[in-house]
Design a protein around this nucleic acid. Structure first.
Length: 414
RNA sequence: GGAGGGAUGACCGAGUGGCCGAAGGUGCUCGCCUGCUAAGCGAGUAGGGGGUGUUAAACCUCCUCGAGGGUUCAAAUCCCUCUCCCUCCGCCA
């Protein structure tokens, strides 16, 4: 990453993510200074080592003098090392704030500047009830007690909704198994280290719940654990691509969203999600990105939901993503498209932090793998869309593909 | 929660202050030998950072023996902290 300091294109790609040029300048300057100092320190260390080595061969007459000499070099070395570690620490701190550069195919701009790639399906008018009202009427969504026990943005799913929830999970997992994904139920509490390596900290720290007493963090997505599956490993090329599907509850503080989506369960602190994660050869990551997207489109298509695909603009990308597609589904009660899934190519951003590499061909250096992730099924939110699109005269019709898993075809308001 | 034991290269395993980036073995690669197979013989075989170099080769240098810190002229080896694994006891299932 720092090796790409000389490529002006990279710099531009980073600046498109709304990073101040001053930060980049400072990092580059620090880097220059760091390397110079490192050279100097290494030379001193080499001399010191040589002096120290001379001691072992010397007989007792010379010994005292040689030790004194080595000792002196040691003093100088230590002084220089202090300077080096200071500059290293500062460099690291700043360098960690530099996001993954945006891909060339990513549009400029912010939240509203995403490029709509395609639109699939019709946009029906609002149903009689929005998903919250309908969910309550069906006895699917219970918030009163949940708010009392846990606070705003928490809810219980009840009755048939629970079976629909697990039907979605089961169905999605089976689809992914057919696509070659290895299913994983990972831990949802992780150490800080895991958050950093997966690329969430420091940037998204305020979105994460912390369990202070044990210094653990509740994951916002199973991606964190899936990423760590090959941490520190050098994979033989034959093991790639490696694809995993994770199921877990996800916890998000949703800081900074006060007043948004306060009705129903569109935006809650806790939800279940089936996630896809791929480790691939660097040359394969663009193709894999399209592949993950096509799986998402297939799943949403099978559920019969109308959607559009958006290529997210540079300023709206997270730190780790070089490129991201969101699939937004039409939410009839609001008369607009709302995000259901997203799918990112991190390239080697988190692979560097995780130290996950592929072995190079004979004589070639090992390379960092590329990692990608995408939502297969955000269960709660999928239910939201289904509650609006499958509302027929006060009756909820179970999407056809889920019926084998639920064992019932519809639910009537009681 | 209490008491011990451990973590070394792809793997097994030696190594209690300098000659250790690391014996030996297995595996793997290359070569030889053999009519195929097995056996045998010889050689090679860690990763990462920085630098010189037009790419590559090559070379220089530093770091890495679970992680981090300390002692020392010198640490795989001594001290401290942490993580993980194993055994025993307790506890809960």
């Amino acid at each position: 990453m720092r090796a790409l300091r000389d490529d002006p294109a990279i710099r531009l790609a980073i600046e498109r993510k709304r990073v101040s040029p001053e930060l980049i300048d400072e990092v580059l300057a620090l880097d220059r200074g760091h390397r110079d100092l490192q050279q100097a320190v290494e030379q001193m260390r080499a001399r010191q080592k040589a002096a120290s080595k001379a001691v072992s061969g010397a007989d007792s007459d010379d010994r005292a003098g040689l030790v004194a000499q080595a000792s002196e070099l040691k003093q100088e070395l230590q002084a220089a090392e202090v300077g080096l570690s200071e500059i290293t620490a500062r460099l690291n701190e700043l360098a960690f704030q530099i996001p993954n550069p945006a891909d060339a195919s990513v549009p400029d701009g912010g939240e509203d500047d995403g490029e709509v790639l395609r639109i699939v399906g019709d946009t029906p008018p609002p149903p009689p009830m929005d998903h919250g009202q309908f969910g309550s009427a069906l006895g699917f969504i219970e918030t009163d007690h949940a708010v009392g026990a846990s606070g705003a943005r928490f809810a219980s799913l009840m009755r048939e909704a629970v079976f629909i929830e697990f039907a979605l999970v089961q169905w999605a997992l089976q689809q992914l198994r057919d696509e070659g994904f290895v299913a994983v139920v990972p831990p949802t509490l992780v150490r800080e280290e895991a958050m950093v390596e997966a690329g969430f900290f420091p940037t998204d720290r305020n979105q994460v719940y912390a369990v202070e007493a044990d210094e653990l963090f509740l994951v916002g997505t199973s991606e964190v654990l899936l990423a760590s599956l090959h941490r520190g490993e050098r994979l033989p090329p034959s093991q790639l691509p490696a694809r995993y599907s994770g199921v877990s509850s996800c916890f998000r503080r949703e800081a900074g969203t006060y007043g948004k989506d306060t009705t129903g369960i569109f935006r809650v602190h806790q939800f279940d999600k089936v996630e896809m994660f791929s480790f691939v050869e660097p040359s394969e990551s663009d193709a894999e990105h399209e592949r993950l997207l096509s799986i998402q489109e297939k799943l949403i298509g099978l559920l019969g939901l109308p959607y559009r695909v958006v290529n997210i603009a540079a300023g709206d990308l997270g730190a780790a993503a070089a490129k991201k597609y969101d699939i937004e589904v039409w939410l009839p009660s609001e008369g607009r498209y709302r995000e259901l899934t997203s799918c990112s190519n991190y390239r080697d951003f988190s692979a560097r932090r995780l130290d996950t590499r592929v072995e190079g061909a004979k004589g070639q250096a090992n390379q960092f793998v590329h990692t990608l992730n995408g939502t297969a099924c955000a269960v709660g939110r999928t239910l939201v869309f289904c509650l609006e699109h499958y509302q027929r005269d006060g009756e909820f019709i179970v999407p056809e593909v889920l019926v084998p898993f639920t064992g019932f075809e519809s639910v009537t308001v009681r």
